[in-house]
């Protein structure tokens, strides 16, 4: 399980974030990105020595300043469901990929093994592109991945 998938699953849950400078931030996770930058709501900031407090409605924390995050125990069980669903999708995609690559090999053979190879290179590249397009199409076929596929295409 990836730390950032756990963090993503923890969205809307309360958490404690300790920064490298020793300050801690208690709040509800609104959003996070792949750099661990995070948005918190209803935040209480505690100074390093623990004797000063600040309340703020929201804050944004740069990922690189974080030391650790403390997350409610139950969140880890919620990721497992996500991960299982994803790995199921992945095996299906791999099946598709296997089909594509064997087609690719069959197509590649006539050109392989002699000087004609050089002439065939653009052809292989083209085939590769077609293959990619098919892969994107396959991903789009799975409803929940549609936004990703759309993004990739741009």
């Amino acid at each position: 399980m990836l730390p950032l998938s756990l963090l993503k699953t923890a969205q809307s849950h309360p958490m404690l974030v300790e920064l490298k400078n020793g300050e801690t931030y208690n709040g509800h996770l609104v959003s996070c990105d792949s750099w661990m930058n995070i948005n918190l709501r209803d935040v209480i900031c505690t100074s390093k020595d623990g004797d000063r407090f600040w309340r703020m409605p929201e804050c944004y924390i740069r990922g690189s300043t974080i030391k650790y995050l403390r997350i409610p125990d139950e969140v880890i069980d919620m990721v497992k469901e996500d991960a299982q669903a994803k790995s199921r999708n992945r095996t299906e995609m791999n099946k598709n990929r296997g089909g594509n690559s064997s087609q690719n090999q069959r197509g590649g053979r006539p050109g392989g093994g002699n000087r004609n190879n050089v002439g065939n290179r653009p052809g292989q590249g083209y085939r590769g592109a077609a293959n990619n397009a098919m892969r994107l199409g396959g991903a789009a076929g799975q409803g929940n991945r549609l936004p990703h596929a759309a993004k990739n295409r741009k």
Binding site: P3, Y68, L69
Partner: peptide
């Protein structure tokens, strides 16, 4: 006892 943690690699 602290429970579930994500510790950043830097640290």
């Amino acid at each position: 006892v602290l429970g579930l943690h994500i510790i950043r690699g830097d640290n």
